[in-house]
Simulated scan of single mutants.
Amino acid sequence: MDDLVKFIHEAGSLKLTPRSGWLKLGIKLPESVAEHSFRTALIAFILVLKSEGDVNKAFKAATAAIFHDLHETRTMDLHKIAREYVRADEGRAIEDQISRLGVKLEFSDVEDYLRDADKLELAFQAVEYASLSPNAIEFAENIELKTDVARGLYNALMDRRDPKWWK
């Protein structure tokens, strides 16, 4: 149980880890990695559900999204420019973390959906941050997506660009 307590505390530190790319645009309090992972999980679930109609596979994709940036508790969130100069052993970090759970996680069958969900979440956040920093919209432009549902969702997002419609 001690290993599980440690794992949960470590995962919780993602709530305190900012998505660093937004800092470069002057966003003073950018979303955390945990916030990003939450919405990525929702998007991954939706992509699989709408693409394949398989709720169990959709849950698997959402779970994959929850874990997809867990390594950043140890490596931090390296923005695009930093990745040109710094290499983090993300695979080793996640293996060490998951070893506390005593299982092997396998998400290869939802990989394309996860990548698309990760990119879409970035695009949604960029649209939202564009009101604070007009350059943020550049993070949403020209995103390459693999799945048809993801491309449709992206096109709808970029056509609307109204993150506060529900208010």
Rank of each mutant, 00 (worst) to 15 (best):
Asp112Arg: 13
Ser108Pro: 05
Leu42Gly: 12
Asp96Thr: 11
Ser99Tyr: 05
Met76Thr: 13
Pro30Glu: 12
Ile46Lys: 07
Arg87Gly: 01
Asn56Tyr: 09
Arg19Gln: 12
Asn135Trp: 09
Glu141Trp: 08
Phe59Val: 10
Asp116Gly: 04
Ser20Ala: 12
Ala123Lys: 02
Asp96Pro: 13
Phe59Gln: 05
Trp22Lys: 07
Arg39Glu: 15
Ile66Thr: 13
Asp148His: 10
Ala88Trp: 00
His68Glu: 05
Ala117Trp: 04
Arg74Ile: 02
Ser37Gln: 05
Leu122Thr: 14
His71Gly: 09
Asp77Thr: 07
Ala64Cys: 14
Arg83Leu: 02
Val127Met: 01
Asp159Asn: 05
Ile27Met: 05
Thr75Asn: 05
Trp166Leu: 05
Glu141Cys: 01
Glu35Lys: 04
Ser108Trp: 15
Pro163Lys: 01
Glu128Lys: 12
Asp112Ala: 11
Asp3Thr: 13
Asp3Tyr: 11
Gly152Pro: 09
Asp3Lys: 07
Leu132Ala: 15
Asp116Asn: 10
Ser133Lys: 11
Lys80Asp: 06
Asn142Asp: 14
Pro30Trp: 14
Ala156Leu: 08
Arg161Phe: 00
Lys50Arg: 15
Val55Cys: 05
Ser133Cys: 12
Ala150Arg: 01
His36Thr: 03
Leu114Pro: 03
Asp112Val: 13
Ile46Gln: 06
Ala41Arg: 03
Ala61Tyr: 04
Glu138Met: 07
Ser131Asp: 06
Tyr113Ala: 00
Leu101Tyr: 09
Leu114Glu: 00
Ala34Lys: 02
Ala136Arg: 07
Leu23Ala: 04
Ser51Leu: 03
Glu95Met: 02
Lys119Trp: 04
Glu35Asn: 02
Ala41Met: 02
Val48Leu: 01
Gly26Ile: 08
Ala140Gly: 04
Ser108Gln: 13
Val33Gln: 09
Glu111Ser: 10
Tyr85Phe: 11
Ala58Trp: 01
Ala93Pro: 02
Asp2Asn: 11
Asp112Tyr: 13
Pro30Gly: 13
Ser37Lys: 04
His36Asp: 11
Arg92Gln: 14
Phe67Trp: 09
Lys119Met: 08
Asp96Phe: 09
Glu31His: 10
Gly91Pro: 09
Lys28His: 13
Lys80Gly: 01
Asp2Trp: 06
Val55Arg: 07
Glu90Ala: 10
Ala65Asn: 12
Ala140His: 04
